[in-house]
Design a protein around this nucleic acid. Structure first.
Length: 256
DNA sequence: GCGACAG
DNA sequence: ATCTTGTCGC
């Protein structure tokens, strides 16, 4: 798969925000998909290792970290693995809530470029449009890939909920845009779904990434969830990045 | 000024 | 995300 070169990754905070505002206008968040007709679905995830080295520079310099990203493509509805891709990249862009894609993006780009098969949809461990500027990780990468993507985060970044989802799998609550001054969403506008994927466990925050609508996004998450809180494509990608990271880190303290 | 804050 | 030991539960 190839990335559209819509912008560089090496940007300042202000430039990153400007990029998000520009890309937001290209989003498609209203494409109704029949998830039962999807043939493949992918999951993507990232892990990283802060570069352990003697700090020569100033102490407030952001440490360079080595990121490993993985994409796992599965067939539907069996969820058998069709293809996997792993790649690494270095970044010094810090973690800033709302700018996660600029930290994980470079590694994800390389992993997707290794992918021969183009999945019908990809699930990300992070937000889609449920983001202060409507462009979370899943939406951002979806735009660069010009592909269908869904955000499935383990916790909330943006948006408010009236009460909590019911206790059973499938129970949900609308995630609404808060009444922020200068916000990109109208107050109360629906931006996602807080979804219980398993009885009695913490829900996940689902939102549209790109080229899909919220109803289909939620259906796809439920369709790919088997017994665990997180859907299988993301879990598989998570295992892959962690294995790859430890496989390539020589001085892992846990191996001494 | 004080919290909130994906991974 | 990563840093970390034991521990409660199925």
């Amino acid at each position: 798969m190839r990335f559209r070169p819509l912008h560089p990754w090496d940007v300042t905070y202000d430039e990153a925000v400007a990029v998000q505002m520009r890309l937001r206008a290209m989003l498609r968040d209203d494409v109704p998909l029949d998830v039962r007709r999807l043939r493949t679905v992918a999951g993507a995830d990232v892990a990283y290792e802060t570069r352990r080295r003697h700090r020569h520079g100033r102490d407030d310099d952001e440490p360079v970290a080595r990121f490993v990203a993985a994409v796992v493509v599965m067939r539907l509805p069996s969820l058998e693995i069709v293809e996997t891709a792993v790649a690494a990249a270095e970044t010094s862009f810090p973690y800033i809530p709302g700018l996660l894609s600029f930290r994980e993006g470079p590694a994800l780009e390389r992993a997707f470029e290794q992918l021969a098969v183009r999945p019908d949809a990809t699930l990300f461990d992070g937000q889609g449009v449920a983001h202060p500027r409507g462009l979370g990780l899943a939406s951002h990468i979806g735009l660069l890939l010009d592909a269908t993507t869904v955000g499935c985060a383990k916790s909330r970044l943006y948006g408010i909920t009236r009460g909590e989802p019911g206790p059973c799998r499938g129970n949900r609550r609308a995630l609404l845009a808060p009444a922020d001054p200068g916000a990109v969403f109208a107050p109360g506008q629906r931006i996602g779904t807080v979804l219980r994927t398993r009885d009695g466990v913490k829900p996940v925050w689902v939102s549209v990434g790109h080229r899909i609508d919220l109803d289909a996004a939620v259906r796809l998450v439920l369709l790919t969830t088997r017994g665990c809180r997180l859907c299988e494509p993301i879990r598989a990608a998570h295992r892959l990045v962690n294995d790859a990271l430890r496989r390539t880190v020589h001085d892992d303290p846990r191996i001494d």
